[in-house]
Design a protein around this nucleic acid. Sequence first.
DNA 1: AATTTCATGCAATGCAATTGCATTGTTTCA
DNA 2: TGAAACAATGCAATTGCATTGCATGAAATT
Lengths: 148, 148
Amino acid sequence: MSGHEKSRLLSSAVADQRLLQHKVKPTAMRVLVLEYLLTQQTAISLNDLEKGMQPADRITIYRTLKTFEQKGLVHLIDDGTGVHKYALCDDACGPAEHHDLHVHFYCNNCKETYCLSDSKIPEIALPDGFGFNEMNLVVKGHCDKCRS
Amino acid sequence: MSGHEKSRLLSSAVADQRLLQHKVKPTAMRVLVLEYLLTQQTAISLNDLEKGMQPADRITIYRTLKTFEQKGLVHLIDDGTGVHKYALCDDACGPAEHHDLHVHFYCNNCKETYCLSDSKIPEIALPDGFGFNEMNLVVKGHCDKCRS
DNA sequence: AATTTCATGCAATGCAATTGCATTGTTTCA
DNA sequence: TGAAACAATGCAATTGCATTGCATGAAATT
Ligand SMILES: [Mn+2]
Ligand SMILES: [Mn+2]
Ligand SMILES: [Zn+2]
Ligand SMILES: [Zn+2]
């Protein structure tokens, strides 16, 4: 068995396990999508996912991502560009409860969207009578790679 | 002159002056749009603007809003619903500089989008090398009217 | 093996932002 | 004043996504 094949099997095993942990049946498509997501350092759009992966149907990827989101495997990011981005959840998110209330960062230069998992959103003082459920904070500027 | 006509002239005068202050030529259409915006308590979408006003062309309203935005008269709000909302700037915003870094609130019940002009966005600690220009914070929950 | 349930692929739809272009109104200046 | 230059308007068309419908194929359940 070649080294390449071996590492392929290994990553498949990792992906498989992660899918099973979240009660998602590990089909070929889902393993491929998850593996691709695991290689990403930043959030990715459906378009880029489609382009980057082996030829695969766009809609199937779309539905795969939706399943992943529902099962707490990935979270959808609205970075204000108008197109949705997806990124893996790092904590143990489950269905119907994403605890990824972290800041997202959009680089105006390289157009990449980062999950700033360590930058938590601070408490916001709301006017009387207002109660909050969720919040979304997107910071825009220049990332570390685009400042040298 | 009737009371109605008088107040109409007065509001026109107010709108006119506000337009001139921002170097926008006060055409009939622009005055109408601005007057309508002045009556709103919450941010409004292009659709609702079109429905609420006297019959007027959608695209013209769209371009009017774009002009207003460029001249610092209104700011565009991305509340995460996918449709843009517009609201008047309260401070003296000028072209190319909106200083309305306030929080926006979206009510999941009545679907209204509020400008929380008093809730400023706090400082966020970014990772090393990241520099910020703008930010967008949207809080979602229930507004004061929807909690009684 | 038959039946049900789930996953996939392709086509079609929906919706809102944006642009092109022709027309009309407004300003500028000879 | 009257032509030329410029700006605003209205209508049609386009774009770019997200989302859904439906038919086919694979997997699980009996
Ligand atoms: Mn994230
Ligand atoms: Mn606002
Ligand atoms: Zn960058
Ligand atoms: Zn409400």
